[in-house]
Design a protein around this nucleic acid. Structure first.
Lengths: 162, 162
DNA sequence: CGGTAAAGAGTTATATAATAACATCTCTTT
DNA sequence: AAAGAGATGTTATTATATAACTCTTTACCG
């Protein structure tokens, strides 16, 4: 029997979205940076699901919503702001972006990405992986600055249905 | 006192190159695939240093060498072949390619990349990191297919000179 | 308040990374 | 030599991201 990690903490994904927006407001207020309407909309779009989204996917959604066609820099500026403030993460292996669950504290993300349902699970900080990387680095005299860990495979739900 | 992991096993980097080419010949012969002149040249170019190279960097080097301008698919086909046969790795966070030290056995690469000298150190397989990832995955019922671990920071040499 | 500087957003063009689609060549086998 | 497969050449295009400049909005200062 597999342990199942849920993507949404509550019954409905809407809670994830509203909670994320709320946290974002708090975090930005606390840091004295502005969560402008554009930035907020981009964040909201990223949070539409737990699947990483490409910048141009977001751009399309944004354009559809607004009626007129937005240009790439519009969305990239939003994404850059959100990345800088730890409100989203970028997945290098997918060129995609995903909402961060714990924007209060700066951290790099560790992700398990299901190749079937495309959902990405962010692991908590200070996992064994973190420790292992630090240990390996120390052993070779390497000082770690940042890191990317992206694991691909099948999540428990997809394994079951397969 | 930091332990120093050397990039080149012998005194001269030329040994790395010739050893890599030799291994590649063996591996390809064994698998019944063809290490054509083009593929070999691409591999040789990737191995010019221990710094990850972009596809277009390789393309430029290739073009310079040949006199005439090569087109992107030329180099991408070479890279694809080398990737498929585990002769090189792709670093997703850099969109760059680097020679693999152990092409005999299929594996994903774990890399420590120095932001100062740009050299990339490939860690041996079955490190603690590997184990840690497997453990985390199991704990959440996730079956691992492949993974990407890319760590950025400062290598022992650059730390010393800083 | 009103002026001003800075931050944000719009717009156009372009850089960078990768692939699609089709033609051609070059082996090997017969 | 012919056929077929694998490899390479060639042209065009897609996908991702940024540069450079303009205009607007906001925050701040007197």
């Amino acid at each position: 029997m597999l342990k199942k990690i849920m993507l949404c903490e509550s019954e409905h994904h809407d809670h994830c979205i509203s909670k994320a927006l709320e946290s974002a407001e708090e975090v930005c207020a606390q840091r004295g940076v502005r969560l402008t309407p554009l930035r907020k909309r981009v964040l909201e779009l990223v949070w539409q699901s737990h699947k990483p989204l490409g910048a141009y996917d977001i751009l399309d959604m944004l354009s559809r919503k607004d009626g007129r066609r937005a240009a790439p820099p519009t969305v990239y500026r939003g994404l850059d702001f959100l990345l800088e403030n730890g409100l989203i993460h970028r997945l290098a292996s997918l060129n995609a972006y995903i909402g961060c669950r714990h924007p209060e504290v700066a951290h790099v993300g560790y992700f398990m990405i299901c190749k079937k349902c495309h959902n990405a699970y962010e692991l908590a900080e200070h996992t064994a992986i973190d420790t292992a990387i630090a240990t390996e680095a120390t052993a070779m005299g390497f000082s770690v600055d940042t890191q990317m860990v992206e694991v691909f495979g099948a999540c428990s739900f997809c394994r079951e249905s397969a």
